[in-house]
Design a protein around this nucleic acid. Structure first.
Lengths: 337, 337
DNA sequence: GTGAAAGCGCTAACAG
DNA sequence: CTGTTAGCGCTTTCAC
């Protein structure tokens, strides 16, 4: 007594039409006489027929599913992007196969291959750095790829981001305006071009404009975790650092807590600005000031871009830069903007 | 110049064997002479052949993908479960199609149907309450279903949880030990049996054991958000409530912050115990005491259970109860345990 | 408008 | 150990 499937053939027989006709009504093809459409629909309903998407995928070479590579769903930052992706995907009748990669190259390649084997119509990639091997796979597969919150310095594939240089430059300038002289650049993986190239560049630009000498020892790298941030506090304080720009929210919260534990007042004696404005920034006390990355939108726009590419529509620009804002909350002294 | 696919047939031809043989080596069937296996493998490599999982799925009636219904990936609680699910899925060569449902019944039903249309081999459901309609769909589809962190009072489908009654009873008892008399029960959707039935029952049990009269006005329902928690603080204080058991971490953080804003000392004058120990509990200041739900494990075990069912293995018990712990951190006065 | 028929790429008996 | 042969359930020309 196996899962007894009823097929398009059964419907055709019961409705006294051909499979082709059933296929047409199922797919909303207008070339069907209303009366026969009605008849078919009736049978479909009666038989409780549900089209087999796998068979359809094989025949049409479209699966209406896209693969999504995510470093870790557990990270609010990526989860927010994923939410934007899924919502738009659903809107356009796609489903997403979500796969955690842990930023691990081998896993990424492997996952990518199984995704391609499953004939996904497109891929959204989130991660640190798009390695050459990965890029090669992308190119070879001919499957559309869009990066979300991930940068491709060569701009070969589509991507959605904000202007990280500009945003970082702005917040650093703000810190300088508040008379901070020793501003730390607290980063997760520097290997990620967003951190090591763009944000760092913004940081340097701001210092330059203010005539402050760049001190490499003010740049800190870590794994981006809360713990890393917390244990880093002592070091910063020791170095005489009086404010920090942090590339990740969790890291920022850790740092914030570490600084407070050391008995230093935030924001009076130490200011912090974070980068993603994920919802945890509002859970911290004081609430974290942060660049307001439009996380959901980045995901949503990336998916929208992907649908266009999959649909072979005309694309004006495949490297999309979204606007951002900055919210000054409790970890900075400036309140306006 | 379309995406030119090379098929099992091409490999067979090039290797001078039949498709069946190629299929065998691809699937690791041992009945192949080593020398021909080698030859085939060589051709596969040379042609860069990649098996088409869709075709395979149609022929074998197995897609090696499972559907995962999640209320919202953005919620750390569910994201953690999802991570456990994905890791075990990957381990067993499955992929997951993740779909956000927003706890919305219509969306759930609809998503479920597209998942079934895509012929997923199994389904993991996370959510509030499994409605009758949903249950009916589950039953009708004959596709294995396992609930993760979601309870089925009728125990018809597999599920993985902890003993919520027991856990809640224990923490309430602890609060009582600390001389708290007016303990609030701060909940997200009461309609969720985990809250409205199990946890509430544990709460009542503990009160009963201590000879404290249950006061319904000490039970608060909300949407479970940080904001809800924060804005709720004043009310609780006004009622003379001196401690709270909270069903969700975000809600708990909001409440904590609200209480502190009101100038009340935590934990000296107000204790809080949360329920999920998601990573945000450690970001709060003071750190939240919490029941330590093994989130990752619940997801992992649920997926493992599902693989067994899909594989038609013998199942000893499909309603699994995992052990839990309680961590007393900064929002409670007791430190031991 | 509708039907017939040829696949889509692979698995799964069944022979041999 | 290997090949033959049917399909899996649906889409898609191409006729009519």
């Amino acid at each position: 007594m196996e899962k007894q499937t009823i097929t398009i053939y059964d419907v055709a027989r019961e409705a006294n039409v051909s499979m082709a006709t059933v296929s047409r009504v199922v797919n909303g093809n207008p070339n069907v006489k209303p009366s026969t459409r009605k008849k078919v629909l009736e049978v479909i309903d009666r038989l409780d027929y549900r089209p087999n998407a796998v068979a359809r995928g094989l025949a049409s070479k479209k699966t209406t599913t896209v693969g999504v590579l995510i470093p870790d769903v557990t990270n609010v930052f990526f989860a927010s992007l994923a939410r934007g992706i899924d919502d738009i995907a659903t809107m356009y009748k796609y489903n997403i196969i979500l796969a955690n990669s842990d930023q691990n190259e081998n896993k990424e390649i492997q996952v990518l291959n199984t995704l391609l084997a499953k004939q996904v119509d497109g891929i959204i990639y989130m991660g640190n750095k798009i390695t050459d091997e990965l890029r090669a796979e992308f190119a070879r597969s001919k499957t559309p790829v869009v990066l979300a919150g991930t940068v491709d310095p060569d701009q070969e594939v589509g991507s959605v981001n904000i202007d990280y240089i500009d945003a970082t430059e702005k917040v650093i300038a703000k810190l300088i305006e508040s008379d901070r002289k020793n501003i730390g650049f607290i980063s997760s993986q520097i290997a990620n071009p967003i951190n090591g190239q763009y944000r760092l560049k913004g940081y340097k630009n701001a210092l330059l404009s203010a005539g402050i000498t760049y001190d490499e020892s003010f740049v800190f790298e870590s794994d981006g975790s809360v713990d890393a941030g917390e244990s880093m506090a002592a070091q910063l304080l020791e170095k005489g650092i009086d404010s920090a720009y942090v590339t990740d929210d969790e890291l920022a919260i850790g740092l914030l807590n570490g600084i407070i534990n050391a008995g230093v007042n935030v924001p009076e004696d130490f200011e912090i600005i974070s980068s993603n404005n994920s919802k945890i920034t509002e859970m911290a006390r004081p609430k974290l000031s942060s660049i307001m990355l439009p996380l959901y939108d980045i995901g949503a726009v990336a998916m929208r871009l992907l649908t266009k590419i999959m649909n072979k529509e005309e694309i004006d620009e495949k490297t999309i830069t979204l606007p951002y804002k900055i919210v000054y909350r409790g970890t900075t002294t400036l309140e306006e903007e």
